[in-house]
Amino acid sequence: MLSIKNLHASIEGTEILRGINLEVKAGEVHAIMGPNGSGKSTLASVLAGREEYIVTEGEVLFHDKDLLEMAPEDRAREGVFLAFQYPVEIPGVSTTNFLRTAVNQVREYRGLEPLDAVKFLSIMKEKMKLVEIDQKLLSRSLNEGFSGGEKKRNEIFQMAMLEPKLSILDETDSGLDIDALRIVSNGVNKLKSPETATIVVTHYQRLLDYIVPDFVHVLYNGRIVKSGSKDLALELEEKGYDWIKEEANAASV
């Protein structure tokens, strides 16, 4: 589904990603972990198409199409979804209104009829249950005055509505209490299918108790320095990142 080869990216002249290689197949869950500043969020941003990051080398194929050539909206329409680490507050735009525009633009791109208000509402009601989100919240300005947990639940709700093929969760667990974490993870798990894939970017192992990964990758200094099964995450939890840093530093000398 997703094939990243030797990806290099920089921001304002500073290279952050220094040769990422990653293969993600349908049905898989990949966790990307690593210390602060290792490039985890940069990778998520580059995949979603944030303009501040310049790709200097490498390629990213999504279903054999060149993802890096596409505008952010086309990536979303192709089925890439980024759950933001810091969801943006947009005063004056309700979640409902904005999502209806988004869903119908995505449907148009995929050659589907737009949803009318009634149909949209019934789908919305069904997906709202997934993340236990209240309709009142959705008719308010997008994320404005939402708690941290509400913002993250809203991200997963949007994911449910847009039905992406590849979901990238950028530190969705950061700042969540255990209840919110459980709700968010439940939502993600219910949306998993043999046709979709998930990349979970996280700093903490805790999330992986709920969203169980098939593969764990450790990012350090802009490279994936270690990959393994979910046991690697437990090892990191126990031992921290220092041993990974040492290994990586020794290897690069």
Binding site: G49, E73, R75, R77, V88, F98
Partner: peptide, 12 residues
């Protein structure tokens, strides 16, 4: 905010 909306599939 513009990027957020684009990332949900809304044209620029």
């Amino acid at each position: 905010a513009l990027f957020y909306l684009q990332a949900r599939g809304i044209g620029k």
